[in-house]
């Protein structure tokens, strides 16, 4: 997949500044009637969703249902895909993320992302973490940077494992460690929201357990949206769950509600394993 963005203009024409009042208190991000097209093909058919502050929201659904596409709309990662067109409204703290007041760079600093496959840069562990703060000019002194690196690694639960080899390449770590490094890297820029796109799908069960624990701890300071294939995982880590199916958001509720008492029969079919 080649990168074809025309920074800073997004594939959506800039609109007048919109203050979105929808959602209510405690709502970090809202989506209203979000439609996404890849060329002529429609991938999302009008999604409405509220994402609450300091909660973990899980997006579940069969593959190809649009949950990853939706996730990538939240920090405009879809801008980097050719032919991708986004319609509708997505707001962060009431501000339209495709509007004039926020641009993609600023948005992505506030809405971080962790990817399906661990993707540490081929640099040292230290430089991996310091990359974000450096480009955003967060740390002015060396000491400050050291501190950011340490806190980020500590929060990601990786500090004790790597503190003696910060100068070694991040690609030399194990898969689970790499993914925690990527989480630490995302934390280092102090985002408000962290998006996770199936962060454990490439990891073994022990590493997965580590990450899940970490997600639970991170909820205290961050709003987290996680896409997962694994319903047990969704049940374990999230407070809210949204079920996606064929480009639609079928239902969204408290995680417990969804898993014990789904209202839609498609949801029920999916969680009972009839398809997916």
């Amino acid at each position: 997949m080649s990168v074809q963005t025309q920074y800073p203009t997004a594939s959506v024409p800039p609109r007048a500044e919109t203050q979105v009042r929808a959602g209510g208190p405690g709502v970090k991000m809202v989506a209203r009637d979000v439609k996404v097209y890849y060329g002529a093909k429609q991938a999302l058919k009008g999604i409405d969703l509220d994402i609450q502050e300091n909660r973990v929201m899980a997006l579940i659904g069969p593959s190809g249902c649009g949950k990853s596409t939706f996730l990538r709309c939240l920090n405009r990662m879809n801008d980097t895909i050719e032919n991708c067109r986004v319609e509708g409204l997505i707001a962060l703290d009431g501000e339209d993320v495709y509007g004039r007041t926020i641009d993609a760079v600023q948005l992505r600093a506030r809405v971080g992302m962790v990817f399906q496959k661990p993707n540490p840069f081929p640099k040292s562990i230290y430089d991996n973490i310091a990359y974000g703060p450096r480009i955003h000019g967060i740390a002015t002194h060396r000491d400050e940077m050291d501190e950011i690196v340490q806190t980020s690694l500590e929060r990601a639960g990786l500090w004790n494992e790597v503190k003696d080899r910060l100068r070694e390449p991040g690609t030399g770590l194990s898969g689970g460690q790499q993914q925690r490094l990527c989480i630490a890297r995302a934390i280092a820029v102090s985002p408000e929201v962290i998006l996770m796109d199936e962060p454990c799908s490439a990891l073994d069960p022990i590493a997965t357990a580590h990450i899940e624990e970490l997600i639970d701890e991170l909820r205290e300071n961050y709003t987290i949206v996680i896409v997962t294939h694994n319903m047990q995982q969704a049940a374990r880590v999230s407070q809210k769950t949204a079920f996606f199916h064929l480009g639609e958001m079928v239902e969204c509720d408290d995680t417990e509600e969804i898993f014990t008492n789904p209202r839609d029969e498609r949801t029920q079919g999916y969680i009972t394993g009839r398809y997916g």
Binding site: D93, Q106, A109, R110, H136, I138, T151, S190, P191, E192, N221
Partner: peptide, 12 residues
């Protein structure tokens, strides 16, 4: 590193 502080950072 409180949430309010970070907000002001990217919107400063």
């Amino acid at each position: 590193m409180s949430v309010t502080a970070t907000k002001s950072r990217y919107q400063s």
